[in-house]
Design a protein around this nucleic acid. Sequence first.
DNA 1: AATCTTTATCGTAATATTGCGATATAAAAA
DNA 2: TTTTTATATCGCAATATTACGATAAAGATT
Lengths: 110, 110
Amino acid sequence: MGTSKTEHFSARENEMALLMKALGHPARIAIIDYLLKVNTCICGDIVNELPLAQPTVSQHLKELKNAGLIKGNIEGNAICYCINGETFFKFQDFLSLIFEKIQNQKDNCC
Amino acid sequence: MGTSKTEHFSARENEMALLMKALGHPARIAIIDYLLKVNTCICGDIVNELPLAQPTVSQHLKELKNAGLIKGNIEGNAICYCINGETFFKFQDFLSLIFEKIQNQKDNCC
DNA sequence: AATCTTTATCGTAATATTGCGATATAAAAA
DNA sequence: TTTTTATATCGCAATATTACGATAAAGATT
């Protein structure tokens, strides 16, 4: 095993799980944090910022990009990454719904 | 390897990553969805609801519980699970901060 | 053109995750 | 008290993730 039975879940469930999973690593949270801090996107600097080797950072960036959470623009020699706001807002929509429902629930755990 | 270098990241980064990771599987998203729908918590019904065997569901519930996203109360024979709103709100605090920053960013990817 | 800089990819080792059958545990029902 | 019901745990196989050294690729610099 090790494979999720994705075909048995809804597209929405799978999509959200992928987004969550993409943020399910401290290095990737740290990358998002850094990108938010520097606003205008930088790239190789992330390698200096994190306690990880360059190939490892590159791999994490790839996962964030695949999930649509960041974008990468070729800028001559370097590649410049930045937050992809759109995806984050899709994320928020999902969570807002959850939070709304939670708020309407009385605090009755069984 | 296979182990994250958690000691090199901040407590907040690690904490958020763990929450995200806990929701990083469609079955666990589906469990949260179901618990939100039925409000007052049910337990063995989750097994009927999901296309997974009982031990697998039990394992997913354990992970959600470890992350603090759900609570489990012994109710005689059965065990009754329900959403733990508190943790979700901690979650929201983190995300609100992100969304706030994103909104303040112009749409300039490099 | 040769070299440097920057990032991606390959290959691999260590570990984690997913899923489930078999089994344990514990309360309820008969 | 035996049986049923409801969950958890063990053990295992298949696969995924994490991390990194080595190397490739591609534009910039000299």
